[in-house]
Write a protein that binds this DNA or RNA. Sequence first.
DNA 1: TGCTAAATGAAATATTGTTGCATTTGTGAT
DNA 2: ATCACAAATGCAACAATATTTCATTTAGCA
Lengths: 147, 147
Amino acid sequence: MTQVKNTFQFEDMLKKHHLKKTAPRLRVLSMMYSKTTATSQPDLENVMHDIDRVTLYRILNIFEEKGIIHKVFDLNGTANYAVCSSGCQENHHHDEHLHFNCTRCKNVYCINDLYLPGLTLPEGFKAESFTLYANGICPKCEKKPHH
Amino acid sequence: MTQVKNTFQFEDMLKKHHLKKTAPRLRVLSMMYSKTTATSQPDLENVMHDIDRVTLYRILNIFEEKGIIHKVFDLNGTANYAVCSSGCQENHHHDEHLHFNCTRCKNVYCINDLYLPGLTLPEGFKAESFTLYANGICPKCEKKPHH
DNA sequence: TGCTAAATGAAATATTGTTGCATTTGTGAT
DNA sequence: ATCACAAATGCAACAATATTTCATTTAGCA
């Protein structure tokens, strides 16, 4: 599930996308790759107090542009970011997977290994990508007793 | 596609949900029913300058609670609202339909008449509802020449 | 080592979401 | 018809987020 990576691999990722290797970027990468759920900007801010909010904002944007991460929205409409599976390219995400919004803990899970059946759209609509959200209770919350 | 309704029907809708018949609410209803695409709060503000922003915010919220409209997010993560199909009840939306985000005009279309195939989630995840987004070009934009 | 473009941090502004409160208004009971 | 009251509105204020500008710093390369 989580793709374990070390600092050298993160440096390679940045180099591959012609991005400079900076401390904030490496820290964002290592945090995002260590999590099984998507990360919101507030999440990052809470962990990395010393990095400017705007810097985080820009890092997330450029990572998304480059296809390193992709954006999903939780139930409140706030942006969350998750590392892309291998199929992503610059400006063209292969995020045809399921996003699971847990209504209890509000975490967003990316569920990559799920077959998304083909769909036929009405006449005239040309779909380039699909995003599927499921809302419910995640395994962790299911185990925990209700507050 | 668009369900044509008149003022009397809007008044009935409000009464059915124990909501008072007020001018702002009737205007919001008539605007939303006249459109084939979802409406954002800024959209409403731009058309109805004289109605307070907070009032619109609250009208949208209570309409959503009552199951009159449902919320969808566009590609920027801003909330859009669309009238619910007949199957919606209070606090439990039947919005298992497709939302089409046009990447060009940014409009959100609700495509009700589309069969959403059943999906099997990984062990432990309990889904209560699904929301499917498709991103691409809508028929209108397809016809228009690129700026 | 030094140059240059890229990246950061800080300040400032725009937009959106949200709450509290005083005032107005719709509606059911009289 | 009107009265009373709860509901709805409008306004002010605030919080959070998104976004731009610009001066300063820094990474990567010649």
